[in-house]
Computed example of a mutant assay.
Amino acid sequence: MSDLVVIVYPTEAKAEDIRQRLFDLQKEYVIEITDAVIAVKEQNGKIKLNQLLNTTAAGAVSGTFWGALIGLIFLNPLLGAAIGAGAGALSGALTDYGINDDFMKQLSETLQPGNAALFVLIRKLTTDKVLEAVKGTGGVVLKTSLDHNKEQALRDALAAHVSAAPDSTATP
Rank of each mutant, 00 (worst) to 15 (best):
R123M: 09
F65Y: 13
I70Y: 04
F103C: 03
I33F: 12
S91E: 03
A117M: 02
G98S: 05
G86Y: 10
A116P: 00
L78A: 14
L78R: 10
G98N: 05
V120G: 01
I122T: 05
L53G: 11
I38P: 00
L78N: 07
L94I: 04
S108F: 02
A60H: 06
T34K: 15
L53Y: 15
Q112T: 15
P77L: 02
N44T: 12
I83T: 07
N115K: 12
M104H: 01
T64P: 01
G86L: 13
T56S: 13
L118K: 04
A36T: 15
G114E: 03
L78H: 10
P77K: 01
T56V: 15
F65R: 10
A39I: 08
L78D: 05
L49W: 06
A116C: 04
K48F: 09
K105S: 00
A39W: 11
N76T: 12
L111P: 00
N54F: 07
L52P: 09
N54I: 10
F74H: 08
Y97T: 08
A58W: 14
T55G: 00
N54V: 11
T95W: 07
A57V: 15
D96S: 14
K41Q: 14
L107S: 08
S108P: 00
A87P: 01
K46A: 12
A57I: 15
L69D: 01
K48N: 12
Q43M: 13
N100I: 07
A58H: 12
A93P: 02
P113F: 02
I99C: 02
N76K: 13
V61F: 15
